[in-house]
Structure formats: C-alpha cells, structure tokens
Design a binder for these strands. Structure first.
Length: 564
RNA sequence: AGACCCAUGGUGUAAUGGCAGCACUCCGGAUUUUGGUUCCGUCAGUCAAGGUUCGAGUCCUUGUGGGUCUACCA
C-alpha cells in the first residue's frame, strides 16, 4: 500500500506507526498489515482492553489491512464460552468487526503439537519428569543462573515416545512437561528452558476431551500469530521479556516471522483493571455485576451510557507510547461530554422537586411550549412540552436568602422558565419541619418565549416540568467507583477501602417531561442543566430508569466551593 | 541484587540534531433563554551532571527515579 503524500502539516505518528510505515517502505510482507486482538476468554473486557482493541483495529484500518479476533484459549481450567460471547458482544459494541476471521488458539492444537514434535526431533525440546518444585528450583533467579535438568539429555527417540504417551493420557497430571532446550543461564528467565506443554485432564470449551496436554502461552501465542500470518503482533509492555522466545520459535521452526511490538497499557485514574479485583467486587456484591455502571468494564461503561465513539476518541487522545501512564478521569469525561453534547437530545427533568404554583395562571389551562431538541444541531427539530399552573422546579434553583452571584429564583426575584414564561416568586410555603414545600409565584403573560414583549431582563433561566403531565421515573446518579486515583497502588492498604460509598445515589422518584414516554434502553439525553443520562436496561414500560452518565460542567458549584 | 524497558507543564502526548507544540485540567474574560456549548486569554515542562556538536529534549557516559521479569496463568 502506498502512503498518501499530502501537503498538510506532518501528521505525528506514534512509535508503532513509525515501525509499520518503515516496514511498508521496505516492502516487508509486500506492504501488508495484519493485526489481531487476542483476548483470553476468562473474564470481561475492561478499559485496558479497549486500548488494545482500538490500536489493533484502527492501525489495520489505517494501513488497509485486516484484524483477526483470536481467543487465546489454552487454559481449559479458567476459560468459558460465556466469556467468549460477552467479549464478542463488547467488541462489536465498541464499533469493530472482524468479519469471518474469528479464530481460537485451540483451532491450532494439532498444528502446535506438530511444532512440538519438530522441536523434539531437532533436539530442541525434551520431556522433563522433574516436579514443579524441582523445576522452579533449577530455574535459578535473575541473579543466579539456572541449572540444566537431568532429563535434558534424553534421546530424541525417548522424548518422542514420552511426548506421544503424554498426549495419549498415559501419565498423571503434573508428572511430566515438555520443555524447550534454550539457555538455562540466560539473564532472561523466560529463556531458561520454558515449559511448552503440561498435562491437564480438563474439559476444554471447544475441543472437549480431545486433548489432555495443553500448550503454554509462549508456545501458543506466537505460533498462532505466525499461522495467521499476523504481520504486527501488538501487546503490552510486560511481554517484552517474552519476545526473544517468540523470535526463537520463529527461527527454529522456520515459520512466518510475525513481529511483536510492545506498548504501555493504559491506566485510568479512579479505575482498576485487575481481573482478579474486578471479580472480587462482583463476588462480594460491592457492585451489582460485571455490567454495573460503576464498573470499568466495557459492558459497565455501555450501561453507564458512555457512547462507543467517545471511548474511541478517549483512547485516541490518550495516545500510544512506552512509558507508564495514568490517564486523568477528566479526559474520559471530556470525551463523553463532547460526544453527547453533539448527539444527545435535550429534555427537562427535575430530580429534587419543589412545587411551584403560578397563582395568576388560569386553572385547568395547558399551553404547549416549543423547545429545541438540540441547540447544537438544528436538524434535530423542536418538540412541544406542556405548561400549566402547577410545576416542579429543582430545589437547588431556589434560595430563600440568596447571596453572592446567585441568579436563580428567590423571594421577590424574577427568573425565566426555559422556553416558557418569566415568573416571580411571591411567597414561600414551608412545612411543619420548616422545609420549603411550595412556592407561590406569578407569571408575566407577555414574557412567553419567542414572543416576549415584556422588556424584562432576567439573570437566570431554569428548567421545569408541568406537574400534572410529568412522568415519574427512577434516576440513578453514578460517580467514580473509587475515592483514590490509584486504589490498587498501595502495598499496605486494600483497594476495597477506597470504594466510593457515593458512587451510586438512587432517586426513586424524579419527574421528567411527558415526551420521554417512549424511550428505549441505551437512549441518551441531556437533562437540561443537570447532566447526561441514558435509559437503563432495567427500565420497564411505565417504570423508566435513567442512569447519570456524566454531569454537566458546573461553574456555579465551583464558584460556591470557593466561598466555603 | 542482575537483565531489560522508560523519563518533556498538574495529566497525557508531539517535536526523528535546528523556534519545545497539541489536548485535558486549572485560572481569567466574552457570548449565552442550559452557571452547558462556543470563543479568547493566562499560568506551567525537557530528571541530574558531564561529554560530542556551530547547535542537544533528541546522540554518548555516569548517576537518579520509575516500571517489568524469577506461574505446569495469559
């Protein structure tokens, strides 16, 4: 593929793109680019995986290549079909398609076994009868060279025979392994005669009981890349030390030379990506499940209401490099807001209601007010919302003793009801507990939005809903799951100590305008002046549930904090 | 401890020996029938010390700091 030359300012490339473009210039693999996303089906996909998915699919797309989906399913003990399905669903939701190229490392078990036989024949692999402890012992340490196994000198014939019998199930689990003969003195621990096959009498989610020996990661991953003729095998930094071995197999087996390139995983502040810890949160009921909107899983973020396009932008802006990083939560929120600002319809919803009675508005009268659906996008058109004598406004939008730059409703003050009239607060009604229970207001009949001849100038505009027509809904306010940006970074403290008790606040009864009657799960809205919300999967007809995806930026809250 | 990797504003990422830029955050201002959006502006950075060079964020050396590796997990 030709790289397009343009006169535009030079696009800056990340280090992986540099390598790819260099390869293309050199005509490597005929300029072909083929990547893969290789999840292990033993857990749900999370933010961290999002980066790997994005990089693999986007890079291939950029250079006219393809991306395979390959499940690295070489450990039947931990892997399940349930995860395979969830992973596929999540990748599709993110916006990527692998066509018919859905592969499994287990598809290659036969081929991998042949590779193993070939290594044995070349004198490059042997069956080791040592115990797990002995192998560990002989492996040495980073500063101590390892020592050669007494079984390393077995003849090719004996090794062939033993390997065959391992495969046939003649030995008990754990008594023998197949090892590559590499270098027990290498400073790289992975080169010290790594284990290739182990015996496991476990049922595999795809191959059933056809095998009782299973290849290790190092003997399956690279060769799978090679079998699929993957040109650029992208993985995270911790696999750096595996690369010499990856290359060793390619050289000894004389197979397709895929190239492994490592990049730094993405960490996001206030999130964790340890599968084990995520599982703990689910098991211990700290969240409602893998798709709890507080979870950093793809399914959780979907349910939270993050648009896939926002996630892609987020990954893109976070960038790709090799240094450790913690991406600020604010960048994620910024990307989500940016996307939703352009796409989400505006509606009015009152979360903490306070009743307003317009005393000079005719009883029983209902006017339909025109409101734009999205001021950022005129093509979204207008809708009508009912206005009547009895309304709800947000409790925060009234202050009995306003101070500072508060310009919402207050006794004797005017405020604009968005898309409707200007009203004045005449009287404050309180209940027995002294809480404000109702506001008596008057409206200016000639101040109607669009035909305002009142000449009045107000400082504030607030949202509202008409009480008789309002829909009662449940609203779930979500916030970050942890109170610390790196909850799992402390050696002396358990990450669960940092679970944010305010990450979920349920409002059982909030009011929304009647236009929302027909919404469906995953629909996104901006509750005017409040935040972005999406319809939760738990919603039923007549019992809608909205999840707060992200708040709107709130300059007023910031202002108030300064005063404290 | 050894090997390997990494080091640029608060955060993330560019600059490929030649003017240290962009985004997010923060702060200030303009606009606004969303205290949203948009627009403008401010603050703020090359880990340290040597060396090579006309010229170093970039190359070399040493140091410092951080990360990774010592599973019959991936």
């Amino acid at each position: 593929m030709e790289i397009k030359e343009t006169n535009e300012p030079k696009e800056s490339l990340n280090f992986i793109e540099e390598i790819i473009e260099e390869d293309i210039r050199n005509g490597k693999h005929g300029g072909r680019v083929h990547t893969r996303f290789p999840p292990e089906p033993n857990g749900y996909l999370h933010v961290g995986h999002t980066k790997a998915i994005y990089i693999n699919f986007e890079l291939a797309k950029k250079y006219g290549g393809l991306t395979n989906l390959r499940f690295d399913d070489t450990n039947p003990v931990t892997e399940e079909t349930e995860y395979v399905d969830a992973i596929k669903r999540d990748i599709r939701w993110l916006g990527y398609d692998w066509g018919d190229r859905e592969y499994y490392a287990s598809d290659y078990f036969g081929k991998l076994y042949e590779f193993a036989v070939e290594l044995v024949k070349k004198g490059l692999a042997y069956v080791d009868d040592s115990t797990k402890e002995e192998i560990e012992q002989m492996k040495g340490s980073p500063t101590q060279p390892g020592e050669l196994s007494p079984y390393a000198s077995r003849s090719v014939e004996e090794n062939l025979d033993l390997l065959e019998r391992m495969r046939k199930g003649e030995f008990e689990e754990g008594v023998r392994v197949l090892r590559a003969r590499v270098d027990m003195e290498s400073p790289n621990m992975h080169m010290r005669d790594p284990i290739l096959y182990r015996i496991k009498y476990a049922h595999h989610h795809r191959t059933g009981d056809a095998w009782c020996i299973y290849p290790m990661y190092d003997f399956a991953h690279g060769q799978s890349d090679s079998i699929e003729e993957i040109t650029h095998s992208l993985c995270s930094l911790e696999f750096r030390h595996h690369r010499p071995l990856y290359d060793w197999f390619i050289e000894k087996l004389e197979i397709f030379p895929s190239r492994q390139i490592e990049f730094a995983r993405m960490n996001v502040a206030y999130m964790i990506t340890s599968k084990r810890r995520l599982l703990l949160l689910v098991r211990e009921g700290l969240v409602s499940g893998w798709d709890d909107p507080r979870m950093p899983t793809l399914s959780g973020m979907r349910r939270r209401g993050y648009p896939p396009a926002a996630l892609r932008t987020f990954i893109d802006k976070a960038g790709v490099a090799k240094r450790d990083n913690v991406i600020e939560y604010e960048l994620l929120e910024s990307c989500v807001r940016d996307e939703l600002n352009r796409t989400a319809s505006r509606v009015m919803a009152v979360l903490q209601p306070i009743k307003v009675l317009i005393t000079n508005y005719p009883e029983g009268q209902v006017e339909m007010m025109e409101v734009e659906n999205n001021p950022e996008d005129a093509s979204k058109g207008m809708r009508k919302m009912p206005f009547s004598r009895e309304l709800y406004i947000e409790r925060d939008d009234f202050m009995e003793n306003p101070q500072g730059k508060y310009f919402r409703l207050a006794p004797g003050q005017d405020v604009r009801l968005k898309a409707a009239y200007i009203i004045r607060c005449e009287e404050v009604i309180k209940d027995a507990a002294g809480e404000v229970s109702e506001l008596r207001c008057t409206y200016y009949p000639n101040s109607r939005s669009g035909s305002d001849t009142s000449g009045l100038k107000v400082k504030g505009t607030i949202h509202w809903v008409s009480a008789p027509q309002a829909l009662e809904v449940e609203v779930r306010l979500y916030d970050r799951l942890f109170t610390d940006p790196t909850p799992d970074a402390y050696e002396d403290r358990d990450f669960k100590e940092f679970v944010n008790p305010e990450a979920l606040t349920v409002i059982p009864k909030a009011y929304v305008e009647p236009a929302l009657i027909d919404v469906k799960p995953q629909d996104h809205f901006q509750f005017l002046r409040v935040g972005y919300f999406s319809v939760d999967d738990d919603s039923l007809p007549g019992k809608l549930v909205f999840n707060r995806t992200v708040t709107l930026k709130d300059a007023w809250a910031k202002e108030q904090q300064k005063g404290v």
